[in-house]
Design a protein around this nucleic acid. Structure first.
Lengths: 251, 251
DNA sequence: TCGAATTTGTGCGTATGTATC
DNA sequence: GGATACATACGCACAAATTCG
């Protein structure tokens, strides 16, 4: 006798009401106490049901304020392929342009940061060697959609015009173009995507729910000499972005 | 004064004991009642702590049996790039060979299945058009590490030797090689990785924990004519595999 | 400006289900 | 089949955040 648990029944009920446009996106739901009394269940049952729908991206909880019907935001398509690298402009600008959005970013660069163990391993340098670290917050139409922290060995660019990724004449041109400017040819990138849950800080920066799913990409650019020239940790929230890899098959 | 909640204290305690080899991988922990009494907390506090460590892949809960220290299984590296496609052999074999593991798979093909809406859209055919569907369970050293469901338009291969992906002279050779055998050149693939939690069925098939994280890749192969020739849903558990995309940058 | 009321979020307890031995 | 242990669902208390008078 598969009797459905109360909280799933309430979840279905809430889903039904949203589907029937009883509440529109952006609307605030009645309080848990109200819904509970109306449906004849305890308020925790309502809470469980709402948590389920929140995890599915259908509802959105705001502490102290209420539970809201989530806006069906169109996801940004982020293309990750060789075609992404253009002789001019940044890869992110190209992504945003392709979906008709305005692409901007905020960045903060710290020069001469000692490399932590994992970064050192990825860059093929020694732990504690100096790096230039730049943290990014990428925005689509002014709203954050992607986080990133980029690391470059300080020795590689020291004394050149491209020491600072977001400064000088090649500011914001992307790693490939900047390296090209100092005579380094970037031949390939390796990306390692991993699913995980957003930290509270990430969720806050991205404006997503706390446990929401993200793809954490560890990307490393290599020169034609086979040496790593840059590595980055990129955090892409599933609710805001879709990731697309294009792979040529040429035989 | 940020006072640490009891369940986090217990989690740290359990972590510490594991680090100090008080319990070895594969060992069963004492029951929650026992741990609770020993540490002076309720057993639900122990449960919370264990859930946390389980979600981090450090512990493993087996219903009716006990909670165990997870075996530190080496993850399989799955490379997704053009280099993966070889004139002979399957891409999966190449992956496994590269990490020194034996690669096998079990498959089941159903011919003439009507295409569900999403598959039809991805293949550029009409809903209900007939397809050949093959579901796979990929094994590394005999243990499942990856699930996949592949769809091909029936019209494309009907009457040829490669109708059945896992039958005939080109069995298991991969989509690119099979299509080449009937004169179709596959020019590129598009992969869309998305993070989500494993369903109960997937977790059971893969031998992972229930809510564990997976990367669900929607992959579509396109011919040089620009038409989709195959699409697949690939489920890769984060605890067992690491995914690597290699992207050439050539200017 | 501040504080009280409201609402969501977190932690913990208890009862029951279910799988394993 | 019984005993044991994990898994699930529900309830309660309190904290944190927001809103509003």
């Amino acid at each position: 006798m598969p009797e459905q648990p109360p909280y799933l029944r309430i979840a279905d009920e809430l889903r039904r009401r949203i589907m029937e446009h009883m509440w529109e996106p952006g609307d605030r739901l009645p309080s848990r106490t109200q819904i509970g009394q109306e449906c004849g269940v305890g308020e925790n049952v309502v809470r469980r049901a709402q948590e389920l729908l929140i995890s599915q991206g259908m509802l959105e909880g705001r502490a102290g304020s209420g539970t809201y019907v989530a806006e069906p935001r169109q996801r940004v398509r982020i293309v990750r392929s060789s075609a992404r690298e253009q002789p001019e402009g940044s890869p992110f600008h190209a992504d945003m342009k392709a979906v008709g959005r305005q692409g901007d970013w905020e960045s903060r660069t710290d020069a001469k940061i000692p490399a932590p163990p994992e970064i050192a391993a990825r860059l093929g340098i020694s732990e504690g060697d100096l790096c230039v670290r730049t943290t990014y917050e990428f925005l689509a139409d002014g709203r954050p959609v992607q986080l990133s922290a980029s690391w470059e060995p300080y020795d590689l660019t020291a004394g050149t015009l491209v020491v600072l990724p977001e400064g000088g004449p090649h500011a914001g041109a992307g790693v490939v173009n900047r390296m090209a400017a100092i005579g380094i040819t970037v031949s390939h990138a390796v990306e390692q995507p991993e699913p995980r849950q957003a930290t509270t800080e990430e969720a806050s920066l991205l404006g997503t729910q706390k446990g929401s799913l993200v793809t954490h990409i560890r990307r490393t650019y290599y020169s034609d000499q086979g040496h790593p020239v840059e590595t980055a940790d990129i955090v892409i929230p599933a609710s805001l972005c879709e990731i697309v890899y294009e792979i040529p098959i040429g035989r």
